[in-house]
Design a protein around this nucleic acid. Structure first.
Lengths: 356, 356
DNA sequence: CGACTCCATTGAACCGGTTCAATGATTATT
DNA sequence: AATAATCATTGAACCGGTTCAATGGAGTCG
């Protein structure tokens, strides 16, 4: 039972074979179940395995089989809840198969991203799941996709024609904008992350298109990085400028949380004097003060879908390309409400409308 | 430069050797830098490597060197911010060396933990960092520690005599209790996680000792799991009972966030009618509503320390055992204040005292 | 010029498994 | 009983590197 700890590293099939009085090949057949072995022999071998605490060396196996049962993941940052959930989803989906995940944080830096990709290539991972650090490496990633199974998550890279799991950023932003407009907002601003990322560009585009559809234009648009700190800075800049917006759309929840901080720092009440919309709906959105209204896009599901796609691709390398687009939904909470000047004409403040 | 993507998987040293007109051994010497190679030859080899897009196969290298440059990590859940930060710390500390991290989520389940440990053993990871799922596996973990470098993080297991990085749970709880008592609280309760975990037991013990030192006894103590949901349930039970506490200590921030939810659900104001203390000080503690006062215990630093310890251990397998105890500190914020009955005699509500 | 170092390079064994062709034993067929 | 067919087991080649002992060429010295 407790195979794990009785394991004596350093015992090889040779040792087992000697102990059981058979050849190495036979031990291999027993261990891998490849060929049928006579029950009596099988039992002897298994007894020897248990006796010696033998655990097969997967490194050796990987060398001959030329597959490692390892998946590489390159994501910006595990400590970012969206990606933590994404990893968790992928890792759960991979658990059923015998794959194991190795991963690296790119911090959205092409240099780090490449470093990990090279590392993974040399380790001969069977496939890679990557949230590309930037468009700058589009060619590299495409080339790499020709060499080994590669699934893009969360972000697209120009010219990518392989497997893909992303959210529908434009649709998501339309949900956000429409929600705010419906509440009566007219001066709506966007705070955004790194413009080299497709998510940032698509969400911005979705934001602008949705506004245009409502015959509005953006009150302000600024960019920075997808982090709390950047959200705070961008929001402060906007809120201290003339004619400040009545609502801020953030391109992800971290930015939105930074926006809430900014409002708090400036003594602006949310949603009384300012509405704030997040994006992603990370677990902590609903714990923020006030609870953050957000465009829900489940990282867990995205990660799980990516892993499943990759597994399929490994089974059938020439199968048709798959593109999974996750449809976003609204998680209505307490950080959005009609703007101050029209409050009177609307219903009371929202309170417990969380749909999650 | 762009080694990563030009890489043609499947090209071997043999191919490079043929192209450069040298032997495989020489190529190996160039690649690994082991032996000195005449500059002219070296250049020819490097040219061939670049030409063919050769990337050494680390699987093969691992087999002969019998080290994989891989570290296994077993933690309860990547999506738990404390552990996400811990992983990030470890992974950053490992980045300088050429180690790569493989990891598995145990969900505090012994079965899952074992599964990953077996997996890692078979893959011959060079070392393991583990936050043990439970005391139940203490013997297993001890045995395993004899077989390969193993560093325990966050939690101790009975009889463990190897390397270790933990927070000082008793001291941390004393900080929490003393802070509350100082504010005038007398009816203080504890909501806790799984009692099979050393952290839960030590924090409980620290809680009780600190109270006793103040000539107080616990208003209530309950247990569950280290999660938001469990925190909410435990807090609701306590707050709807007779003679409810004026302050709740939570054994981690997730529990505390659940406690805040409970208070919100019950219409109790925090910190007006109830004070709540967290533990760990995850990044989202300061974004909660109200911003959560917490015992700070940086997951990033703990993870980084564990990784450094492991690296040292790999360099010197027989070196002295190291035990790193991280000293906790208080992150004072807005979720604690003097209890209602004594409010008058104290200063105004806390507002912006965040020390982070 | 021959003897002796020193250095770069090579061939082959090895790491620990997998797998294929070959062998030997057993069973089925006629 | 002889032959064919089936099955279990084995020996050896192989995966792609590393490394050690051996080789051979250039350089130094007397």
């Amino acid at each position: 039972m407790d195979v794990s700890t009785r394991a004596k590293l350093g015992t090889t099939m040779k040792d087992v074979a000697d102990a059981a009085g058979v050849s190495v090949g036979t031990v291999s057949h027993v261990v891998s179940g490849a060929r049928h072995v006579r029950p009596a022999t099988r039992d002897r071998v298994n007894a020897a395995i248990a006796e010696l605490g033998f655990r097969p060396n997967r490194v050796a196996r990987s060398l001959t089989r030329s597959r490692t049962s390892t998946i590489g993941m390159v994501i910006p940052d595990v400590a970012n809840p969206f990606f933590a959930e994404l990893i968790r989803g992928a890792s759960d989906a991979l658990e059923a198969s015998d794959y194991v995940v190795v991963f690296g944080n790119s911090d959205n830096l092409v240099t780090k991203e490449r470093r990990y990709l090279v590392e993974f290539i040399e380790r001969r991972v069977d496939g890679v799941i990557i949230a590309p650090a930037s468009n700058a490496d589009a060619d590299q990633i495409r080339d790499l996709g020709d060499q080994l199974p590669l699934v893009l998550v969360d972000r697209v890279t120009p010219g990518w024609l392989g497997d893909l799991v992303v959210g529908d950023d434009q649709a998501g932003m339309a949900l956000a904008v429409d929600h705010l407009v419906e509440q009566g907002h007219r001066r709506i601003a966007l705070i955004n992350g790194e413009e080299e990322l497709s998510t940032a560009r698509e969400r911005r585009r979705g934001f602008e298109l949705a506004l245009r559809a409502q015959d509005l234009t953006a009150a302000a648009v600024s960019g920075g990085s997808f982090s709390i700190e950047s959200g705070r800075e961008q929001a402060i800049a906007m809120l201290t400028a003339d004619d400040r917006p009545t609502a801020i759309c953030a391109a992800n929840d971290l930015l939105a949380l930074g926006g809430l901080q900014a409002a708090h720092d400036l003594g602006l009440s949310v949603p009384g004097e300012l509405s704030v919309m997040g994006y992603d709906d990370i677990a902590y959105a609903k714990l923020a003060s006030p609870r953050l209204t957000s465009v829900a896009q489940p990282g867990y599901a995205i990660g799980a879908a990516a892993a499943r796609l990759l597994i399929e691709r490994l089974r059938d390398p020439r199968g048709a390309r798959q593109e999974v687009v996750i449809r976003p939904s609204l998680a209505l909470r307490d950080s959005t409400a009609p703007p101050a000047e029209q409050r009177a004409s609307h219903l009371p403040l929202p309170s417990d409308r969380d749909r999650h």
